[in-house]
Amino acid sequence: MAGLAHRHRLAASLVATALLALTTGCGSGDSEPSASSTTSTTTKETDVRSRLATALATTDPTRAALLEQSTTSLSPLDAPWLTGWRIIDVNSDTVPHPQRFFVALAEDDRALLLSGAPDAFNEMVADAAVSLDTPEKATAVAETFLDATRSFSTYSYRINSLDEVKWRSGLNESGTKLRDSTVASYGAQVTAPTASAAADGWTVTAWAVEGTDLVRHALTIASDGAVSDKPVTVVAGLPVPVSL
Rank of each mutant, 00 (worst) to 15 (best):
F101N: 09
V90S: 15
S169F: 00
A126K: 11
G237A: 03
A128F: 00
G237D: 06
D93E: 15
Q99F: 12
P241R: 00
T43A: 08
A208Y: 00
T191D: 05
G25A: 15
G175D: 01
A128V: 06
E32P: 08
M124C: 00
R168K: 13
H8C: 04
G237P: 03
T182S: 00
T83L: 08
S36W: 09
S70L: 06
A5Y: 12
A126Q: 02
T62D: 14
D180M: 08
T62F: 07
S196F: 03
L4N: 11
V125M: 10
A188H: 07
D163W: 02
A206Q: 10
T54H: 14
P135R: 07
P96N: 04
E164D: 08
F145S: 08
E68T: 15
G225A: 01
A18H: 14
Y157E: 05
A117S: 13
A236D: 06
A142Y: 04
S151C: 05
L214T: 04
A199D: 12
T212P: 00
S70P: 14
D163H: 05
A236N: 08
S13T: 09
R216S: 12
A198R: 01
T62R: 07
V232C: 02
N160K: 13
V15S: 00
D147I: 13
I87Q: 07
A188S: 14
V240E: 07
G225L: 06
A184H: 10
A12Y: 02
S70F: 03
P96S: 08
Q189K: 11
G211R: 01
V190F: 07
A192K: 12
S37E: 10
A21W: 04
K177A: 13
E45C: 09
S34N: 06
A2C: 11
A5M: 09
V215W: 00
H6P: 01
A184K: 08
V242C: 12
S181D: 08
L114C: 04
L219K: 04
S223M: 13
S37L: 14
D200H: 15
T154L: 15
A16S: 11
A21L: 10
G225T: 11
S31L: 13
I88M: 15
R7F: 07
P80H: 12
L113A: 10
S50Y: 03
F121R: 03
A128P: 04
A128W: 05
D119L: 07
T46I: 03
S228H: 05
F101Y: 14
H97N: 14
H97K: 13
R49S: 04
T58W: 05
P80L: 11
V234T: 11
R168D: 00
L66M: 11
A129L: 06
D119P: 06
I221R: 07
P241A: 01
T42S: 08
I221G: 10
E107V: 05
G116F: 04
A55Q: 03
A126D: 10
K177M: 13
L112I: 02
V215C: 03
